[in-house]
């Protein structure tokens, strides 16, 4: 068990995504690519070879015209807490300590240069949140010039994934230190790129243990649920939807079972 550094306050960052607000525009995806130096190729239509730290899925209720409904589901890395707050499915399987659980923030790290590409974590992740660099990334025609120094570019043969823009937390923390009050990081000081990018305000991000942060209240909503929650992965990403079919589409239920929010007994 990792010891908590004595000089840092423990936080538990999490995200709440309101599926009733998401329009499926993919601004979050592009903002993420741009923020995190995600590579691209000319052929990206095979999604299982395409690197996305957050991916917006389109799901439908399966009813025929005109009763069809569509819901867009943005899915970053779930930053699972896993068993006993610290054992996400992907972390303990890594043979080379390229990924660990950052106890002070609840974020699952991934250090690509340490990774040697065994892809065990990818197999362990039920969300397909971890992406492999099948090709060496190339930024053609001066495009290297837009790369951000905050996030190290990856190379062929390593896994990468969403980090909840940890470098932004570092940035906020650095400024807080500079200002002489290391613990004074406000909600607005640290927001992920996708949260900031969402033009519809569907994504909320913050410290889930801090009552001053919006996520603290939102995740307690009756309509909050998590993706594949029943696997016991304890994701730090919550979703909101008032539509029952969306709840059903996001976790596995036996025929007689009902999603918690609609299970008769109030949640």
């Amino acid at each position: 068990m990792e010891k908590l550094p004595s000089h840092t306050k423990a936080r538990h960052f999490g995200m709440v995504i309101d599926l009733d607000k998401c329009t499926g525009c993919a601004s979050c995806m592009v903002a993420c690519y741009s923020e995190n130096n995600v590579s691209f190729r000319d052929e990206e239509s095979i999604k299982l070879l395409s690197i996305n730290w957050i991916q917006v899925y389109k799901i439908t209720n399966g009813k025929p015209f005109p009763d069809t409904e569509v819901c867009y589901l943005p899915q970053p890395c779930m930053q699972c807490d896993g068993k006993d707050f610290g054992h996400p499915p992907c972390v303990s399987v890594c043979p080379a300590v390229a990924t660990d659980f950052d106890t002070p923030t609840g974020i699952v790290s991934q250090i690509p240069v340490r990774c040697f590409g065994c892809r065990y974590c990818m197999a362990a992740c039920p969300y397909h949140a971890r992406k492999f660099n099948w090709w060496d990334p190339v930024w053609p025609a001066d495009m290297e010039r837009y790369l951000s120094p905050d996030v190290s570019p990856r190379m062929r043969g390593v896994i990468e994934k969403c980090t909840f823009c940890y470098h932004r937390f570092q940035r906020a923390r650095q400024q807080a230190y500079y200002k002489g009050d290391a613990e004074n990081i406000k909600e607005a000081d640290y927001q992920t790129a996708c949260t900031q990018a969402c033009p519809s305000g569907a994504i909320t991000f913050g410290d889930m243990d801090n009552p001053d942060h919006a996520v603290y209240t939102l995740k307690k909503s009756r309509y909050a649920f998590r993706l594949l929650e029943r696997l016991g992965t304890q994701p730090s990403v919550y979703y909101l939807s008032t539509r029952k079919w969306v709840h059903r589409a996001c976790d596995n239920y036996l025929e007689h079972e009902e999603p918690a929010a609609f299970a008769g007994k109030s949640a």
């Binding site: 095979i46 299982l48 070879l49 892809r119 990818m122 397909h128 971890r130 492999f132 090709w135």
Partner: peptide
Amino acid sequence: YGLNQTNMNDAYGF
């Protein structure tokens, strides 16, 4: 040339 020479993908990491 790397693992792009195979038919593996992010779902079939193994």
